[in-house]
Amino acid sequence: MNGEGTRSLEARLKAGDADAFEDLVRTHGGRMRATARSILTNQADADDALQDAFLAAFRSIDRFEGRSQLGTWLHRIVVNASLMKLRSKAARPEQDFDELLPTFNASGVFVEHQEAWTESSEGAAARLELQARVRECIAELPKKYRYPLLLRDIEGLSTQQMADRLGTSANAAKVRLHRARQALRTLIERRLGRPSG
């Protein structure tokens, strides 16, 4: 990426420079639009998600600290906006979160047996289909848990950086990410059977 150019664009954005917002849309919009379309397939939905994403980006530009590239930060935002659109199209409500966590009896033993997920080799097409289904599962997570998952898995933030973004302690951020993964594991198992990674 063009480090100098990107840095000055950030500075101009934070200063509220109107031209900078236009530059941001022209520089990153095409790539974000392609990402939205890869998630939503329908172009009109993708364009809605893109608009939502830019609104979210404009609103939170103050909180962008340059810990990840501007492009990566925008990728996370457009993915989230696309997932929200996906969820509204699927008309699936947010899950009752606690119900997605594993349960243990009074002696701390799993209430249900945990089965192994199958290991089968699959082609590229099947893998893309699997990833699309996994995104639907991520979309079903409540924001409180979806957000740390995206911060880690897209922006690659450390636990402390995540905590700064979330406004929590490092330990709380860690627990949230762990719960998000546990719940996602349950959703994948329920919606897809026991897939291979």
Partner: peptide, 15 residues
């Protein structure tokens, strides 16, 4: 399966 979930999540969210 937790590990597989982590890998699937990263793969499904990458650009």
């Amino acid at each position: 399966s937790y590990r597989q979930t982590m890998d699937l999540s990263v793969a499904s969210l990458k650009d």
